[in-house]
């Protein structure tokens, strides 16, 4: 069976860059961006999208509900 593949969308301007999702991701998919959002935070973003399985661990720990998770099998 093929590995599930996932993708996350992170709201750029609502993310507070707390890094909890980066830490929670089992596959090191996420990192904080070098860019600064409207609130002055470095939002989280995908850096290794090919590793994402859509497990939603990032979304689980996200306090601000800024992550939408997609998954295909």
């Amino acid at each position: 069976m093929a590995k599930a593949r996932g993708l996350v969308e992170i709201l750029f301007d609502t993310c507070k860059g707390c890094e909890l999702c980066v830490n929670a991701c089992p596959f090191n998919v996420l990192q904080l961006s070098d860019q600064v959002n409207a609130k002055g935070y470095h939002p989280s973003m995908m850096v290794n999208p090919e590793s994402c399985t859509g497990c939603a661990s990032c979304a689980m720990v996200c306090p601000d509900s800024v992550i939408t998770v997609y998954r295909v099998k």
Binding site: R5, G6, L7, E9, I10, L11, F12, D13, T14, Q31, S33, Q35, P43, M45, M46, V47, N48, P49, E50, Y70, R71, V72
Partner: peptide, 23 residues
């Protein structure tokens, strides 16, 4: 949607991935 997915040092066609998965 104010989303950003940046391509950094990985060699993946992110747009193709998005098209396929974001449904």
């Amino acid at each position: 949607m104010e989303t950003v997915i940046e391509k950094t040092n990985v060699n993946v066609d992110i747009e193709a991935l998005r098209k396929e998965i974001i449904k």
